[in-house]
């Protein structure tokens, strides 16, 4: 017991230990999703966050110690966000061919998401901090979290909302749009990308190539739009 305590004291605050825990939890999340037949509900990210959170709480580790140790992983979110430019540039042709439709659908869908998110939180008695955390959540997670921290939301909450929102969109998206008599892959793809970013897009992507291209387009353009519009709304709301 004393030996374990001693080992813990020397390893418990090192990046090495927490990098191993984080990578192992993510690998376990992926394995679990495969075991569930690739189910959208079994999100590897949510599973990994849960596993790591339990370990951090059980070992009475300060969150700041964990976060400092895994800073490098968090740092890579920046270049990963920039990397979204590659699929975005690839779909530039699709924008040119469908300019009016894509532009209008993106703008209305994105603004609807932000305004209704803030409005519903406010209507149900939520605080300003939670409303600001909700506002950028339809953007792809790194952009959503970056916007959230900038406007005074809680980035961790926004990241979780972005992931769970993506799951919601993936689970109900196809059924709902079909009920609305929408049966074009371009509309399905764009809606999935704008409302549910990566997780919803993945579900369209495995069914249809054109839908996948429009979903990628929706993610990229909505990310850029949220990055511009939501901080402006927050700035205006302050005064």
């Amino acid at each position: 017991m004393i030996a374990i305590d001693h080992l813990w004291n020397s390893l418990g605050t090192t990046p090495l230990l927490w990098l191993v825990v984080t990578l192992a939890a993510y690998t376990a999340g992926n394995a679990l999703q495969r075991a569930c037949g690739g189910s959208t509900f079994a999100s590897p990210v949510l599973i990994a966050i849960t596993i790591v959170a339990v370990i951090v709480v059980v070992t009475r580790t300060d969150y700041r110690v964990y976060f400092t140790a895994t800073q490098f992983i968090n740092f890579m979110l920046g270049p990963a966000t920039v990397a979204l430019a590659i699929p975005l540039a690839r779909s530039a042709r699709l924008v040119k061919e469908n300019l009016a439709g894509v532009g209008l659908a993106l703008l209305t869908g994105s603004v609807t998401s932000t305004i209704s998110g803030i409005g519903l939180v406010w209507l149900f008695g939520g605080t300003r901090t939670v409303a600001l955390s909700m506002a950028p959540k339809a953007a792809t997670t790194p952009i959503a979290a970056a916007v959230s921290s900038q406007i005074g939301g809680i980035p961790a909450l926004t990241a979780a909302l972005a992931i769970v929102g993506g799951i919601v969109a993936a689970v109900v998206g196809r059924t709902m749009l079909t009920r609305l008599n929408i049966n074009d892959w371009r509309a399905h793809g764009l809606a999935a990308g704008v409302a549910g970013s990566g997780i919803a897009a993945a579900q369209v992507a495995e069914r249809n190539e054109l839908g996948a291209a429009f979903a990628a387009l929706g993610i990229g353009l909505n990310g850029a739009l949220v990055g511009i519009v939501v901080p402006l709304i927050a700035q205006y709301w302050k005064s």
Binding site: G117, I118, M134, K137, M176, N181, L190, A195
Partner: peptide
């Protein structure tokens, strides 16, 4: 409420306008 409501509304509006 905010998460589910805004996600569904955004899906519907984007899909309908594109359609």
């Amino acid at each position: 409420a905010g998460l589910i409501g805004s996600t569904l509304l955004s899906l519907a509006v984007t899909g309908l306008v594109m359609h």
